[in-house]
Design a protein around this nucleic acid. Structure first.
Lengths: 354, 354
DNA sequence: GCCTCGATATACAACGATGTAGAGTCAATC
DNA sequence: GATTGACTCTACATCGTTGTATATCGAGGC
């Protein structure tokens, strides 16, 4: 910048002003500076600016793993939403490890960016203290509800209830669950399992523990294993509610391996509505929790928080939909899908900012 | 840092030394400083350090889209490899747009990190000038081979040839291609199509343009559309080589929609060996191009380049394998897969560093 | 007892930008 | 004709670190 100033015969500050689009500059001066910049191939040093302005225009997104399609798609959406606001996204993978999640929240890199969108998988309500910081934070997911931070979540219970009821409405009486976390009280697993219970009850079906398949991590592989375990145990099953789509794909694989027809023998519903399920064979019905809106909202809230709005913390729940596809026989001939709204979204103020 | 120094009764520089693990410090002093840091909750300001040291310990990974599973998995691997070296990864999505790719190379953010791993999809050999910079750069993919930069690529031709030959070895005579780019001379499409031609020739099969299906972007949807187009055109097909796995999944979907059995009526091979194909119904045979190794190597090369090694630019090609699964009838009963090496990897010096 | 050297700690000047305050110019206003 | 105010530009301090040069001290070597 020094050299540019020299060549253009102006002060360093004027160069800075030109670069930053400060309005009160004579066109002639601006031109000289721009010529010098061009000639010298000068590029603004972002680090120095960051130091001086105390902003980086970067945000962090911490997710368990990008190889899980839901999080890859979420990251995609977050990056696009951030892009529109001129922000760059730095992605941290926590591998669902407690240690990494703590590190993301408290480590050195926490202050590398202006704010954090955090999707915990290992931390729980007991770790609320870790989230109590001044640094802008938006929490995603269903594990921590009482943090002093903005929160974007989804209609887990209502959506799971709707999914279960839908299976029951097809006449299925033996609806299995894939992906439960026994004994857990928080998190997607607990909430979706609760929705499943409610759905059964609403349909007048009994709750049978034999139908509840555990799966720690929600991968394709664990879905397949859990499904296989249920089938091998000789449990009678005519429908499956997989608590996420990755496991639904795994379950489908396991059903197929045992020559069970979907939806003929077993109907199947997943959760997340990732792109995969639209091309699976057969296509898989799923709950669309509003991923795109979750991403946009998270970025919006974070941007507001970074701007320093002292507004109360909010909890936002996008509207969710149940998308019926072949795996529940919802598609006649030509293909396509049947969509039913589960519940509209909403925003709620949580607590006044301290 | 100033406050810490004050409280510990030492100079600012000493605090810096403690933080950076400088060895010659009296244990007693170190203790006082650490106590002060703890007490004041001091955190090193990374931005200031970056400015001073002229390093950020961040690298950029530019890929088309995270919602494409191959790139999501690649990003996952790159992040892990970088993590091991204490580097943070910033991901840029180019959406395969020329404009965004140019921006990634030349834009303001280019100098936000220490180096760039770039996977172009729109730029070609004619843009080699854009890649001619001093900033550390590693190029991935098959579009630009002559850039003055390190390059990690794959055995496209040999692998595609092997895939085609494998289909032929099953007795298939009408092997379609999904994802060709007509008239294109560079890029994965051209190379893999060339491998397909070679495979046909080696198998003594004729090349029939009617069997070559075009698809611009390599998504599930375009794979499905291209497959449908071929089938609807009445082309006789008993095998399909999809140039990537996303399209293979789409093609499988389209085949299924037309009640064609895989592998009974049509055998199918994909490319990339993403996680999806291992759980598809049926599981899909695919070429594993060595994604994990590509990621590791790219990070390694970039790290060396950042360290300022003036070594010649290298071109690295990981070994690739053909993984046989159900879609080519390679799996007997219990499941599993059959693996055959296509070609070992290798490293090659490209040109002396200027 | 002088010299050398390692260990320990410090002062000062950067790194490359921007915020603030203010100087100069010129036209409009009273 | 002095005052005001908008416009244009500049000097200087500053953001929070680290590199370099240097000071001090005590121990060991000769």
């Amino acid at each position: 910048m020094h050299d540019v100033a020299l060549r253009a015969g102006v002060s360093i500050k004027t160069v800075s002003n030109v670069v930053n689009g400060y309005p009160h500059i004579r066109p002639e001066t601006r031109e000289r500076v721009e010529e010098a910049i061009e000639h010298l191939g000068y590029r603004l040093n972002t680090t120095a600016r960051n130091l001086r302005t105390r902003r980086t225009d970067m945000i962090t997104l911490a997710v368990p793993e990008l190889s899980l399609p839901y999080f890859a798609e979420l990251a995609d959406s977050v990056i696009r939403a951030a892009e529109e606001r001129g922000l760059t996204v730095l992605i941290e993978q926590t591998s669902a490890s407690r240690e990494r999640e703590v590190e993301v929240l408290t480590g050195r890199r926490r202050h590398l960016t202006d704010g954090l969108i955090f999707s915990p998988l290992a931390l729980g309500p007991e770790d609320v203290d870790l989230l109590t910081t001044d640094a802008p934070l938006v929490v995603l997911g269903e594990r921590i509800f009482d943090a002093p931070a903005d929160h974007v979540t989804m209609n887990n219970v209502a959506a799971a209830r709707a999914a279960t009821l839908h299976l029951a409405s097809l006449g299925r009486r033996r609806i299995a669950v894939v992906g439960a976390h026994e004994g857990e009280l928080v998190g997607s697993a607990a909430l979706r399992t609760e929705g499943y219970r409610q759905g059964l009850e609403a349909a007048g079906l009994p709750y049978d523990p034999a139908l509840v398949g555990e799966a720690g991590l929600w991968h394709r592989s664990t879905g397949a294993e859990t499904m296989a375990r249920l089938l091998d145990a000789g449990v009678e099953v005519d429908a499956v509610f997989a608590l996420n789509d990755a496991m639904a794909l795994g379950a489908l694989h396991a059903l197929h391996a045992r020559r069970l027809d979907v939806p003929g023998d077993v109907a199947l519903v997943g959760f997340d509505d990732i792109d995969d399920v639209k091309y699976a064979v057969p296509t898989i019905s799923s709950v669309d929790p509003g991923r795109e809106q979750i991403a946009r909202t998270a970025v919006e809230l974070l941007v507001e928080r970074i701007a320093g709005s002292g507004t109360p913390f909010r909890r936002v729940v996008p509207g969710s939909r149940l998308v019926g596809r072949e795996s529940t026989g919802d598609v006649p001939e030509g293909g396509g899908e049947v969509v039913a709204a589960v519940q509209p979204g909403g925003t709620e103020e949580v607590a006044p900012r301290s």
